[in-house]
Design a protein around this nucleic acid. Structure first.
Length: 453
RNA sequence: UCCAGAGUAGCUCAAUGGUAGAGCAAUCGGCUGUUAACCGAUGGGUUGUAGGUUCGAGCCCUACCUCUGGAGCCA
């Protein structure tokens, strides 16, 4: 029976026999014996295998090269040398799949750029093993966080026929050959269809029935964005709460980030230590900081005042009514506050139609959570629940209320104050691991001009 | 898409306009416990592509391609 290497390395006592399977990271030969470093991805560490002339399969040892897959059986014993607690003295080794000398993953360091060109092999590297084990753990933690708080998971549609979500360029979905706009009524859905850019509007309908809901699924943007923080396909988390205002929304967003940081510290310690050592030496401190310290909350107006009196010049101007630029967000969270900052109550003209208008009739109940290194990681708002105000807001943003008939119905039939936010899963992972490029926290990144794998 | 930078051996990088090199990897050999093992030897190149300047271009010029960083858009 196969033992995962993580379990073999966690053994409390020696074992007479253990069978492990994995891929060879290195082989170190002496005259009469060899060391194999075997990795099966169950943990970051390799298992050391000692092979000598008594081992069945010893005559095949030359084919046990870096990258090859193998089965190893033998007693698990305490290692006499430093570097590992346990090792296997192989009774039997068996090659499963040999590895060509052209195997591109060397024992020594590779650049992230090179590893992106071999995205099918990079999960076998230390860094990407750590990243994707952490991604899996965090995906579970996201569901656990919401389920423990009685949120209902809603699978909102990936294909949408409403082109009015207003969150950026969309990918067209069609089954027609040629120009899909020539005869849209002949298309599969009898109207133009797209890949979703947000599940928020649909999530609101479920919140106005099941109270607290969340989505966690793929999202698509056809923007020609070439940055370390954007991908054409990414995973988004969107909670939506009925009977909730902006304060409750900010409370949830901050609690969520704290919970994710705490989960990583508790359950991903080995991989986190790797990130802290090789990716960003501030990673563990940053997570502890997020867990322990309260977030700072700043009204937009106050944030603008801070930036104006910052005593330094920004490339982009600071004035009420202008969006905060990346450099402004980074100044607030990295230099001025030195902690995550939640900015709220933005001018209505720079925010979408669905956000609730404040009594001053100038600002809306929007909030952005800014974190050091990434900038905006959460964007959310209390939604406009008043029918007349929502219709007025649509007109203000020059949108046609007819296109939003079912969304307006929510305000017509038993409307309630409600609020929610959106958060990019990959950006969360970047913040938690210190990995600075979104292409390196998603298995196969889709970016403009790149969908090879 | 805009601005800047970079493309040289499988990888990471050198090379005043004048004979393209090193480390690692690979291949072969050595070594009685290694830890990115170590020691020795060998093979490895249309310098991103296409033009141009020059007696001579990896190096200078033009265009294009790709990648990286920053910006915009945003999550």
């Amino acid at each position: 029976m196969r033992t995962l290497i993580k379990h073999a390395l966690a053994a409390a006592a020696p074992a007479e026999s253990a069978t492990v399977m994995g891929w060879i990271r290195t082989r170190r030969d002496s005259k009469d014996f060899s060391f194999l470093a075997l990795n099966d991805g169950s943990c970051a560490a390799n298992l050391q295998v000692v092979v000598d002339s008594n081992t069945s399969g010893f005559d095949e040892l030359a084919r046990f090269t870096t990258g090859a897959s193998a089965t190893v059986e033998g007693p698990l014993v305490a290692s006499p040398a430093a570097g590992q607690k346990w090792e296997i003295h192989a009774r039997r080794i068996e090659l499963i799949g040999g590895s060509d000398p052209a195997y591109p993953l060397q024992k020594k360091g590779h650049t992230l750029e090179f590893l992106r060109t071999i995205a099918h092999l990079r999960p076998r590297s230390n860094l990407f093993g750590a990243v994707f084990r952490t991604r899996s753990a965090l995906a579970f933690a996201v569901h656990r966080f919401f389920q423990e708080r009685d949120f209902v998971c809603v699978h909102t549609p990936i294909i949408t026929a409403s082109d009015c979500e207003g969150a950026g360029e969309m990918f067209r979905v069609t089954s027609l050959k040629g120009d899909p706009d020539a005869k849209p009524e002949a298309d599969f859905f009898a109207k133009p269809a797209y890949l979703t850019v947000s599940g928020q509007l649909e999530a609101e309908t479920f919140a106005c029935a099941l109270s607290n809901v969340y989505t966690f699924g793929p999202t698509f943007r056809a923007e020609n964005s070439n940055t370390a923080r954007h991908a054409a396909e990414f995973w988004m988390i969107e909670p939506e709460m009925a009977f909730c205002d902006l304060q409750g929304d900010m409370d949830l967003g901050e609690a969520f980030l704290k919970a994710m940081a705490a989960y990583t510290l508790e359950h991903c310690a080995e991989d986190l230590a790797f990130f802290n050592r090789f990716v960003d030496p501030g990673t563990i401190d940053r997570l502890k900081f997020v867990v322990e310290r309260p977030f700072l909350r700043l009204p937009y107006t106050e944030a603008v005042e801070i930036l104006k009196s910052a005593g330094r010049t920004f490339e982009f101007p600071v004035a009420y009514g202008l969006n905060l630029q990346s450099e402004h967000e980074r100044f607030l969270t990295e230099d001025h506050c030195k902690c995550p900052v939640t900015v709220f109550d933005y001018p209505r003209e720079i925010k979408p139609f669905y956000m609730r208008l404040n009594d001053d009739e100038k600002t809306v109940r929007a909030m952005d959570v800014l974190v050091p290194g990434i900038g905006e990681v959460i964007g959310g708002s209390q939604r406009e629940e008043r029918l007349e105000a929502l219709e007025a807001s649509l007109r203000y943003h020059q949108l046609d209320p007819k296109d939003y008939w079912w969304y307006l119905d929510l305000r017509r039939f038993g409307t309630v104050p409600h609020a929610g936010f959106g958060l990019g899963f990959e950006r969360l992972l970047m913040f938690l691991t210190g990995v600075s490029n979104i292409r390196d926290v998603i298995p196969f990144a889709r970016t403009p001009g790149n969908a090879e794998f």
